[in-house]
Computed example of a mutant assay.
Amino acid sequence: MSDLKAKILTAVRDDLEAIEIALADNLNPHFDLVSQVAGHILFAGGKRLRPLLMVLCARLCGHSGNHTARFATIFEYLHAATLLHDDLVDDADMRRGRPVAHLVWDNPTAVLTGDFLLARGLSTAADTGLCEVIHVIAGITENMSQGEIRQMARKGDLSLSEAEYLEVIRCKTAVLFEGACRTGALIAAAKTERVEALTAYGYHLGLAFQMADDLLDYTQDLTVLGKRAGADLREGKLTLPLIYALSQAPAADRDQMAALIEKPDFSDAEFAALVELLHHHGGIAYTQAQAARHVAAAKSAIEGFAGHAARETLMDIADYALVRKA
């Protein structure tokens, strides 16, 4: 895993540097408090994966314009906005290993800064001069809001199905990956078949990424993940490892898992027992297999771009989605 990560970082070092500069430059002209709160989440160690995908997809389609990194900030701003809002909705206390913004400042400041970042993303989309890009970004914001509402409405609901879970993560995660890849192709004026191929890559990568993230909630601790293991469960979020295990478990084990779901102050020992049940009833293995299936679909979508260094990096990113530790 470390070798793959190092390979990716070497390939995209200049792109990441350009994205960092663009993120900061786009905040500098604005009200100091907005910049401080936005910077608290933006510059707390994020991977910049979403803007990087846009840059790589644009390059893969032959784009070499001067504003690629600035346009790519759209996707980090949208992502950061959702994190600010989600942390407040979920009453979270940690994000990326540090206190969440609404605890450092206050709830209204966090909400309004998230709103600003959404607006900043839309205004930057308008700067592309492409109506289809504006349409993509507007669709992302709509879908992400719907995904959060769906998830909030079904907190702690043991009847949540795999299909309903997939719709939630499509809205909350996959549409942002998909939109980043599609926008890269659009600003490069790529042919329709290339736009659709990269859109499919982003969609499947986003699903795989979220499934892998959901697995980390049961397998990693605070020092690696940046939040306490079991945080999603404490917030009443049922994800695929648990949904599948519940569907396979006999009544006694299902009742044991249900009792824990209804007890947000469960102990570390109780959580460890739940993780054992997830392994025993196939929830961990099933989720890993589904994530791997979507990674394979993502890689298959870009097979037609052979012979380009950006394609190799996108292939590596897809593989890394499965093996990352945070």
Rank of each mutant, 00 (worst) to 15 (best):
H204N: 11
E312W: 09
L260T: 07
E262Q: 14
R48G: 03
L117F: 02
A289L: 08
L215D: 06
P51E: 07
I284R: 03
H30W: 12
H135T: 11
K5Y: 07
M211F: 08
G156D: 11
E164A: 06
L42G: 04
S247T: 07
Y218N: 08
N107D: 13
H79L: 00
N143S: 13
E162N: 07
E20P: 09
N107S: 10
R96T: 07
A81I: 04
P29L: 05
R95A: 03
R150V: 12
P51H: 04
K191Q: 11
E270Q: 13
G202S: 05
D214G: 06
L56H: 01
G121D: 01
L186A: 02
L158D: 03
R311W: 00
G139N: 14
D90H: 00
A126N: 11
T192G: 08
C61M: 01
H79Q: 02
F75D: 07
K191T: 06
L4G: 04
G156E: 10
M94Y: 10
L207I: 13
A197V: 02
L176N: 02
E17V: 13
L274E: 06
A296Q: 09
A249E: 09
D255T: 14
D90V: 06
H102L: 08
L60Y: 04
K47I: 01
A289F: 09
M54I: 01
K299T: 05
S145K: 13
T141P: 13
L207P: 09
L238G: 01
T219K: 14
L33A: 09
A269P: 02
L322R: 10
S123T: 14
L112M: 13
R95H: 04
Y244D: 06
M54H: 05
L238N: 00
K5L: 11
F266M: 15
S35P: 12
L84N: 08
E20T: 13
G206K: 02
A229C: 10
L112Y: 13
L207T: 12
K155L: 09
A22K: 15
D319T: 08
R120T: 14
V100M: 06
Y165D: 00
